[in-house]
Design a binder for these strands. Structure first.
Lengths: 187, 187
DNA sequence: ACCTGAACACCGTTCAAGT
DNA sequence: ACCTGAACACCGTTCAAGT
């Protein structure tokens, strides 16, 4: 009882962030389709119309979530780049795949075709910033290494989504992180 | 005028197939989110409740579409396997990616997390049959080549979805099929 | 400036009734 | 056996009105 509407606080104070936080929880638990604006408002203890003071539409809310997803992703990539490990590429690849597995619904939202349909510039910018990190470290700037860099990116990204979709069958007792390492280290 | 409801044909005759065909068209034009059961019924010239004689729910309709997607995909893969080209793997990879690009919405539906959420056995079976073709030709059966086969699959699948999402920027005047070949042929 | 209440047009789905 | 008409509970969204 009295979990989320402590004495009906008229002006919520920080409704925007409360909505985003609750949305992330619902997103990972129910998936994108299960994240309704009315459910979200209910979860935060506010009227169905209240979210519209902070987001133009449901799509705008989803975009905001996807943008924070790209920001977290960028952060994770920069962290391993700064740690400056001896062979950078494989450990970045593992970080990429593990980020996807640990933030499944968020990762999928980052690449959602529905958001892409109405060209959202904020999303595009966040995505570009995220992938710039990759290009920088993988030598994708030089026109020579471009194809090699794209091939490596495709392998890592493909591994992430195939694992996410449960398309890659694990063998009995097989450790998923070990498999990821094996696949990424195979050149 | 008189495009789709020729004199109100009481018993449509083959409503199930008419629904599936119209759904494929709407799907590629509007995306999955734009494919409503009521719109679909309207497009075929039938009442909003009529589709329920042939599909239990909207999800069941989407599943049927995804299954035919996997069947078409399997067909495309078997066709190139039977042509028996000298170096089979690269041309299968190109077929894979081009199938995704030419059936964008359908391909995405085949891997839709929403359908996966309610474990649909028909979908799982169709997907397994499709990927069995790949395993057979890529030597993924032998425990030795498994990791190599998974790495190749991941690269091809990743390339498909990155291109689909417009994440791979084409250079000025660059031919997309040429780029696909370059990336796939890079070992 | 931020939120509520009530309304609007729309869904997916159900069910009695028609042919 | 297959389809219609009308209804139900639910959305996302809008807008006047409240604080």
């Amino acid at each position: 009882m009295s979990t989320s509407q402590q004495n009906a606080p008229y002006h919520h104070g920080d409704l925007r962030n409360a909505l985003l936080e609750a949305a992330l929880v619902i997103l990972e638990r129910e998936g994108e389709a299960g994240l309704g604006l009315r459910d979200l408002a209910r979860a935060v203890g506010v009227s169905p119309a209240a979210p519209y003071r902070h987001f133009d539409s449901r799509a705008a809310l989803l975009e905001a979530l996807a943008v924070t997803g790209f920001q977290r992703f960028t952060r994770a990539m920069e962290d391993v780049a700064e740690a400056n490990p001896p062979d950078m590429l494989p450990v970045m690849g593992k970080t990429y795949v593990l980020f996807a597995l640990r933030n499944a619904a968020l990762f999928r939202l980052m690449f959602s075709p529905q958001l892409k349909r109405d060209n959202r510039p904020g999303l595009r910018m966040a995505a570009d910033a995220a992938f710039a990190t990759l290009r920088h470290v993988s030598g994708g700037d030089t026109s020579n290494g471009r194809v090699t860099a794209l091939a490596a990116w495709a392998r890592v990204h493909g591994l992430a989504v195939l694992l996410l979709d449960g398309q890659i069958a694990l063998q009995a007792g097989e450790d998923i992180e070990a498999l990821i390492s094996e696949i990424i280290d195979r050149h």
